[in-house]
């Protein structure tokens, strides 16, 4: 079950329409926090679900926000695309308070998202999900030849690497020359 408020585009979130359900009624009311990605869509997530992320868990531990403060100050993750953050939030909700099974089937299989997902999960420090994602990345080259791996993982050949290095050196040289000329001009 998703706790996401799709379409909310302001930094201050509106009242969420749904909230995560728990099997047993907790004795202490569960606290919620709010996160948004590049698209500013705010997701309401329970502290329990967010515990998967060492980064967010650390932030929460230090803040001691009230519910109101948390609502007014969603955690901004401007470097993470909205749809990727959605995937991560969904995963955290699905695995709230549970250990991750060795073969997690709750993850999206779209390979086009995998690169960004790995970066986001790495940034958010969600260890179990990161291991799973890295396994998915590794699986992409199972049984492949170096030639095929080069294509799948977009690995430049030695010649391409050398050409890129030369180009970078050339550019750096030009920039340095430009800076010297500018400095000389300023001196005049």
């Amino acid at each position: 079950m998703s706790s996401t408020e799709q379409g909310t585009s302001s930094a201050a979130p509106a009242e969420p329409t749904t909230a995560p359900e728990s099997a047993a009624a907790p004795e202490v009311p569960e606290s919620f926090y709010y996160v948004h990605g590049k698209d500013k869509v705010v997701h309401k997530v329970s502290a329990g679900a967010l515990q998967h992320s060492a980064l967010i868990h650390g932030m929460i531990s230090n803040l001691g926000y009230t519910e109101e403060q948390a609502k007014a100050n969603p955690f901004p993750f401007e470097n993470i695309d909205g749809d990727i953050l959605q995937m991560v939030v969904d995963w955290c909700n699905q695995h709230k308070g549970k250990p991750t099974p060795p073969e997690d089937t709750n993850l999206p299989k779209q390979k086009e998202k995998l690169f960004d997902l790995v970066l986001a999960v790495n940034y958010l420090e969600i260890k179990e999900l990161l291991t799973y994602c890295c396994k998915q990345v590794a699986m992409m080259v199972k049984g492949k030849s170096p030639e095929e791996i080069r294509e799948i993982w977009m690995i430049p050949t030695d010649a391409e690497d050398e050409a890129a290095e030369k180009e970078a050196k050339k550019r750096a040289g030009k920039e340095a020359a430009g800076e010297t000329a500018a400095a000389a001009g300023d001196a005049k």
């Binding site: 086009e112 990345v137 294509e151 993982w153 977009m154």
Partner: peptide
């Protein structure tokens, strides 16, 4: 769909 593995940060690699 290819992914640019070498663009991953080092620890991720």
């Amino acid at each position: 769909m290819p992914i640019a593995l070498l663009k991953f940060p080092y620890d991720l690699l």
